[in-house]
Design a protein around this nucleic acid. Structure first.
Lengths: 339, 339
DNA sequence: CTGTTAGCGCCTTCAT
DNA sequence: ATGAAGGCGCTAACAG
């Protein structure tokens, strides 16, 4: 582990001033071809590589962007993260990942990272801010983009969001169109310390669709629990054992839909003949399972969010943007007309 | 976007020298309680937070570790990455992620990141080095840990590996024990520009098990293609349409096993009665599918690798370690005795 | 075109 | 216990 060469070593070897070396490194036009050659030679001989930290300090930019993302394991979050990474690979920026798995870390990250990390930009992924987070976001030192996260009074921060209310409505409407009236909804807890809003919004869409059709909402047709296949499975077992069980179930995610399918199988209910199931997200495995679902543009949301952030770093005075991504109903094999 | 406060501002406000502020920040014992108080007060008033870049430059450490990982989308890689992140969240280190999706990027990352990024340590995840990568790894400036990646002549670099040959043998042996003789193997291309070795090693284990039992290997029982469910599905369709089709198939990953199951369903072959299927990895969805598989310690491999790296950063002269993780046969519902 | 100089913000001796 | 000074490696402004 030898001490790495510095710009000064290169300058000495090439017989030039260190300012010249810096110019060569930064492709300044004002350096003669011959000295440029000499400098490059010295650089190669010494296997010199500029120290990024020193560079950052001098430039007063960290050339890195921070992404705060909850639950590495949820496939939909990963796909969004992939979209972000994709755009970053070609850029000069590094990607620093902050995974959030506890509420404490959530608060700490949302409030401190933008200020403390000195990243040139921050992306908050799928973590809707709470009221008391707002000041930290609004008075941030650096540009922030929220992806899949929103808050009613947040017009000054860039966002890429999904209309989950509409998505929930589409899903429910699809079931209604198939003739179903007894429609269940299985989701995360509507209130969570992480303040995930998607289950809530989709629930709202569900209610809207029911209301428009004149179907009364039955509380026993709503199951909630921690996010996960198993929890949804338990919820579904309950719901499907009701005296008057639903003939269709809408779940707040594909993962949860899998739990419902598992429960149906266990109860010897045929999908889609005895029970229609529709999920949300269109994660990769959905196609394999033949799962009808509401497709979100996951990868694209990451790409767009990154683009927005980078352009905001270039041009800090640009007006804040709020882009709403569309959802699409993907009909596969788990939904069918009511018998 | 105001200019952030510096240590100097704090010093001025607190009426002390800036060395003292630094001491307070770094919990130096040699500072009186009263001045410590005064300094903290100033820090809070100014909402001061030390500039990490300046700190790193001065400390000559980047306080970050780089992870080079291919294909964000493969669930098994993500799970390993999660293990790494888990340990890092509590530490002072940042996690910089380099995703590799092309061969060019692979080469560039493996060879340049350790030298150029100046990360304090580098983890190379699931990217086995090629011969011509070795010099870069062996003469690295910083500690390197390979996870799920190996090379025969690499005794000087830390590794967390899996005995994939043994894993392949276990899987095949399980099928043999069930009475199967016509056993297929579906994998990635054995030779890939990324130099993934797992399919190759598991194939070797497959061959060993066959040989020990006196079963001749039939080339038509080996299907290879790009990694993915769809490609495995195509491979399986072929193989299952042979005049004498296999009665059991071992796949190099759970994802590929899903492709096989899809093909079986399409051909109206019942699993496990007409066809036994065994996968590899035990990714999350395997349990849901009731897939018999070879379990790897994915999360743990990430954790262990990180631990190893951190301890190597602390103690650079420690002898290199090569830890071999065990695999375990998980019997579920896709394998059954031959009829 | 190029060498020199003054920072970037922090840590760390070295005196006191 | 604390202030002052030098240095980490690079960029950029200023002379020439």
């Amino acid at each position: 582990m030898v001490k790495a060469a510095t710009i000064r070593d290169v300058a000495k070897l090439a017989g030039v001033g260190l300012g010249t070396v810096s110019r060569v490194l930064n492709d300044s036009p004002s350096v003669s071809e011959t000295t440029r050659q000499r400098v490059w030679e010295a650089i190669n001989v010494l296997n010199f590589t500029p120290n990024p930290t020193a560079r950052k300090l001098s430039l007063r930019r960290t050339l890195s962007i921070a992404v705060i993302v909850p639950f590495f394991t949820r496939p939909s979050f990963i796909e969004r993260l992939r979209g972000i990474e994709h755009g970053l690979a070609e850029s000069q920026y590094d990607l620093i990942v902050y995974n959030v798995e506890t509420v404490e870390r959530r608060d700490d990250c949302i409030r401190e990272i933008p200020h403390r990390s000195r990243a040139d930009g921050v992306i908050i992924l799928s973590l809707p801010p709470r009221d008391d987070d707002l000041p930290f976001l609004i008075h941030s030192d650096v540009p922030i983009v929220l992806i899949d996260a929103n808050h009613p009074s947040l017009s000054s921060v860039n966002r890429i969001i999904v209309d989950d209310v509409l998505g929930g409505r589409k899903a429910t409407q699809h079931l209604i169109d198939l003739g179903h009236h007894r429609i269940g909804y299985i989701s995360d807890f509507l209130e969570s310390p992480f303040n995930f809003t998607s289950s809530r919004d989709r629930f709202e869409g569900y209610l809207q669709a029911l209301r428009e059709t004149g179907i009364d909402f039955r509380p026993e047709y709503h199951g909630q629990g921690e996010h996960g296949r198993f929890e949804a499975y338990i919820s579904a077992l309950d719901m499907l054992s009701l005296p008057e069980r639903p003939t269709a179930i809408f779940t707040a995610s594909d993962t949860q839909a899998m739990g419902v399918m598992q429960a149906a199988q266990e109860l010897a209910l045929d999908i889609p003949n005895d029970l229609s199931v529709i999920g949300y997200d269109d994660i990769e495995v959905a196609e394999y399972l033949g799962l009808t679902t509401i497709q979100q543009l996951l990868f694209e949301s990451g790409q767009l969010g990154l683009e927005l952030l980078l352009s905001n770093i270039e041009n800090p005075d640009a007006l804040p943007v709020c882009e709403v991504l569309q959802t699409e109903l993907i009909i596969r094999k788990t939904t069918a007309p009511m018998r």
